[in-house]
């Protein structure tokens, strides 16, 4: 991370991995191709690690998008994970999801959901449904007050409205084959609790009080980088949060972290071990090609992962990833 509490050597992430026999951390495959296609977003949430917002202009070029589609044909890549910013705001999103869907692989789009209410983007609900795209919506908390503290006043109600539209289109409904998952991340300087306990509460409150439905809840620990790092510093919580992450280090999660099976592509085509490293400008290293135009599966599938102390966010407690907890 760029700045954090001063650490003793024994407290570093590398040292923790050494102690549990997981250093150096190495990739074992590339099963997920994560594409961060834009930093532009209609929201500017307080926890956003990529610091996305309406004024960002970074967009993946069509040439780079096309190259990602080619790379995604590799048989070992089974999941295409499209994120941003708000990926819906990318001018080629329609084409991209159609192309990726044809591959028959799991294709998911990470959405703030609110964007789907805007006339310019509302057609994407049918587009996503037709292509069986899995939608992962960000809903930091099942209560409006906490959620809106991160995302802005009134956003929670709009998310409920968007979920109703998605449910109407079949998303989150049993046997529809259309998956709507939600992403939880704490609205403050603490770690997420048990994913199953939180999922039960989300389902209870959302169904009983709002009549909306979803499939699975993914819990994500906030990573101390970007806008969230600024929040930790400004609120005087940085040292305490880092200490909490270090104390919660769980050796069982070290072998399961998502970077071991993922490559993350930046808007400019550069390759990273994860979205967090992307924000920190830590491209893949150890002699692996670091651009989508020089993608080499064999080298990337056994690369050493670039680690820093922000990686503690993925190994705390039950572990954390873009698809939720790493252990039960």
């Amino acid at each position: 991370m760029t700045e954090s509490a001063k650490l003793d050597n024994k407290d570093t992430f590398a040292e923790q991995l050494r102690q549990c026999g997981s250093y150096p951390l190495k990739a074992i495959a590339v099963n997920t191709l994560q594409m961060n296609i834009t930093r532009k977003c209609n929201l500017a949430c307080k926890h956003c690690h990529v610091q996305a917002g309406p004024h960002r202009t970074e967009m993946m070029s069509l040439e780079t998008v096309s190259q990602c589609v080619k790379v995604a044909q590799h048989p070992s890549i089974t999941t295409i994970d499209i994120t941003g910013g708000s990926p819906e705001m990318h001018p080629d999103i329609d084409w991209l999801v159609s192309q990726m869907a044809q591959s028959g692989k799991r294709v998911l789009v990470r959405s703030n959901l609110v964007i789907l209410l805007e006339p310019e983007y509302s057609h994407l609900i049918d587009k996503f449904a037709k292509n069986k795209i899995e939608i992962v919506g960000s809903l930091p908390d099942y209560r409006a007050q906490r959620s809106d503290r991160q995302r802005g006043n009134g956003i929670y109600d709009k998310i409920m409205e968007a979920m109703r539209l998605l449910n109407k289109a079949g998303y989150g409904r049993p046997d529809s084959g259309l998956l709507l998952d939600l992403m939880h991340n704490p609205a403050g300087a603490y770690l997420p609790g048990s994913q199953s306990a939180l999922e039960a509460e989300y389902k209870r409150v959302l169904s009983q009080e709002h009549n909306v439905f979803f499939n699975t809840l993914f819990c994500l620990a906030n990573c101390p980088i970007g806008r969230y790092l600024e929040y930790l510093k400004n609120s005087g919580n940085l040292d305490d949060y880092m200490q909490t992450l270090r104390k919660a280090f769980n050796p069982q999660t070290a072998q399961k972290v998502m970077c071991r099976t993922t490559v993350s592509v930046g808007w400019d085509g550069k390759l990273y071990d994860c979205d967090f490293n992307q924000v920190e400008n830590l491209s893949v290293n150890s002699g692996s090609p670091d651009h989508i135009f020089t993608f080499n599966y064999n080298l990337l599938a056994r690369r050493n992962i670039e680690i820093r102390d922000h990686c503690f966010a993925c190994t705390a407690g039950s572990g954390s990833s873009c698809c939720g907890s790493l252990t039960v």
């Binding site: 908390d141 209560r143 704490p186 403050g188």
Partner: peptide, 10 residues
């Protein structure tokens, strides 16, 4: 208190 926050308790 931290555990209650983590579990999403209001």
């Amino acid at each position: 208190t931290n555990k209650c926050l983590s579990l999403g308790i209001d």
